[in-house]
Write a protein that binds this DNA or RNA. Sequence first.
DNA 1: GGACCGATTTAAAGCGCTTTAATAGCTTCG
DNA 2: CGAAGCTATTAAAGCGCTTTAAATCGGTCC
Lengths: 353, 353
Amino acid sequence: MTDPDASAPLASPPAPAVRGRRPRLSDVAARAGVSAGLVSLVLRHQPGPSEQTRARVFEAARELGYRADRTASLLARRRSQHLGVVMDVRNTFHAELVAEMDAAATRRGYDLVLSTLTPTRDERTATENLLDFRCEGLILIGPEDRAGWLTSLGQELPVVSVGRRLKSDSVDVVRAADDLGVAQAVAHLANLGHRDIAFVDGGRGTIASDRRRGYRQAMRGHGLAERIRVIPGDHTEEAGIRAAPELLNSHATAVVASNDRSAVGLLDRLARLGTEVPASMSVVGYDDSMLARLGHVDLTSVSQDAPRQAEEAVALLAERLDHGRTEPREVLLPPRLVIRSTTAPPRPISTTS
Amino acid sequence: MTDPDASAPLASPPAPAVRGRRPRLSDVAARAGVSAGLVSLVLRHQPGPSEQTRARVFEAARELGYRADRTASLLARRRSQHLGVVMDVRNTFHAELVAEMDAAATRRGYDLVLSTLTPTRDERTATENLLDFRCEGLILIGPEDRAGWLTSLGQELPVVSVGRRLKSDSVDVVRAADDLGVAQAVAHLANLGHRDIAFVDGGRGTIASDRRRGYRQAMRGHGLAERIRVIPGDHTEEAGIRAAPELLNSHATAVVASNDRSAVGLLDRLARLGTEVPASMSVVGYDDSMLARLGHVDLTSVSQDAPRQAEEAVALLAERLDHGRTEPREVLLPPRLVIRSTTAPPRPISTTS
DNA sequence: GGACCGATTTAAAGCGCTTTAATAGCTTCG
DNA sequence: CGAAGCTATTAAAGCGCTTTAAATCGGTCC
């Protein structure tokens, strides 16, 4: 009497509706003997429906193996609760950020939609793809945006740039204070007793120049202005390999590399040249990448604190979307030095071996 | 006369409709002076509309900065043209696969929707997320699926497992023939003149045992059955580091490691122990990962051919979706040995140095 | 006994796009 | 000259869900 509907097969309890198409909201409604609107309310845990109705609806939904069609929900709902992320899936640091962002988004009731850069899909295409999905806000990891279109995009919806400085009055930014990070590395080495601390440069580029500047300032801060020594390089292993001989020719007892890859190249060449690390040379990298963490590398490095950057990026979007903030913000995070086994006090005899 | 609609502001040509909500199909239709259906046809390059109409519609769309709402399209269209991919965004091999899949999918007119595994989102949750997006087919990279629910999922829509064997009569599989890969490595070493070729094991697990088996078979195939030597280990750097001493104690002049990480640990320890590679010991890894390709590692390794795997995975889905295949298929790809600088003929004097 | 209320429930109007059946013009043909 | 046959275009019916206004139903109150 309560369920005169005989159309549903008497399948075993948890059996999904195998026959025909996937069940719709109206199927659940029919089965529970209520209207579609009510089912919608119940399944989204909205207030209103009576306790008895809730039970009936849940039961019916379970029996049918009902699963809401997100596409339809999105279309009908005002908000999509989607945040888009543009990333390079092949970049391990991006990957780490995304994993954390996902958690942060979920915590706030948002869902992440990923769009990755590929040889055939540039930043702009990837971004537009996300817009097609009705994302309410966008996070771009290390965006290049030479053309400045990000700014105009920022006027249409909340946009956050992660990891890269950006002059724009509409885009929020989250990044690590690279100069501070290098300063920490220098301070660590200075505290160990090093005075001749060299730097393997990262070439031109926003990030590299921030780090170089950080090195210079830190050295001056420690009264080591005259011992500043910047060895040319870039952000590849090759750079570190090339830098090794020049490094050994200098008086340096310690070195900070502009990134981990360069530091690893350096370590490798030093080993081949018979220089012991950290006994004869302390080495600090930058990025705290997987590379640095590899057991046999175990490189002291500066961490960019991906979890925190991810959290802040999502928080910035949430602020705009949920609390109506409109003026742009920039979040500068302090990097953190992770001390591993490539740094130690200099040899007692300060003359190079 | 052709355009009596004055509602559109006389904005500069490429100016997007900043005022108010984003333009809809009907806005374009009104502006072009045609019906919405026609606009839909034109923008999707469907046959029917006249040349003149096409021009008018494109013009109007451009002026308004129109961008189709994908959500609505999906709902209205029968097919979503979406393929879902479950991956671990932190795994570099997965990343590589995804990048290639994206290209392959695009080529066939499909779009990829990514769902990543995170600490708070397991394989099952990630998969269901994709279903919500109306994906027509699913690709799971290295799925664990202990519970066997993949099989039942495979009965509802096309599913492909990449990289992992799977006994199921509904799920397609793409993977590399690991035993063959190891065989190639052994053959390469044997051709160089090595006879005592050891193997650093990868522990238990489907993949590791395939490789171990491949090693044993290959050695027998080369008449080296008595020289088979499997050194215990797993798929981490640590394993390689631990294996080094035992390796040196054996008569081995060459070694194949079950994966690159283990090979890299091995290389590192060998270097510290003063063993020259490849002069005194040839080393082959497996996976041809970024690690192997790093300039200073330059490890001879077996490539799993990510591009090909990606291509095949997408092709399998396309076969089912576009050509109605229903019986399951398994694609076994031949791995490819990538020779780099860690392998060479053994020392002329065959007695261990 | 009729107006009035609060708690539930329902019918119906979209969300923005696709698709199908039907219409309107024009040519061509018997 | 009317029937046929085209082609270009349109009106309208969804896609599956959300949401709003209206309807229902017991009770209450005076």
